[in-house]
């Protein structure tokens, strides 16, 4: 997805309130905002820092979700737990 080039000239280069905007964008990415579509469209179309922040945050969430190494669960752990539960029943 190469969206960085398109229409970037129509965006303002300085965000009015990065702190507020970025937290809002993060809440949207976390699925914590209702009616987020409209807000998002507006922000991304008009503000370059918001646009970049959104895509960076999205990329970070993606790699965290898909690439963060998972620890292999020791095979005996579940049996161990079941045995201990048997003992206290």
């Amino acid at each position: 997805m190469d969206m960085n080039e398109e229409t970037s000239q129509s965006r303002k280069l300085k965000c009015d309130d990065t702190s507020k905007c970025f937290q809002l964008l993060e809440s949207i990415l976390d699925g914590e905002m209702d009616n987020s579509k409209e807000v998002l469209k507006e922000k991304l179309a008009k503000c370059q820092p918001c646009f970049e922040h959104f895509h960076l945050e999205q990329a970070i969430r993606d790699v965290l979700k898909t690439r963060c190494t998972k620890q292999e669960v020791p095979t005996e752990l579940a049996d161990c737990i079941r045995q201990k539960i048997q003992d206290i029943k």
């Binding site: 990065t18 970049e52 960076l56 990329a59 970070i60 790699v63 690439r67 963060c68």
Partner: peptide, 23 residues
């Protein structure tokens, strides 16, 4: 701090990182 965050770390760089680096 918020502004800096976006100006010098690119989404593309993050996408190129390995799982170990993220972890």
């Amino acid at each position: 701090v918020d502004y800096q965050s976006t100006t010098d770390l690119r989404a593309e760089s993050v996408k190129g990182m390995l799982g170990d680096e993220i972890s």
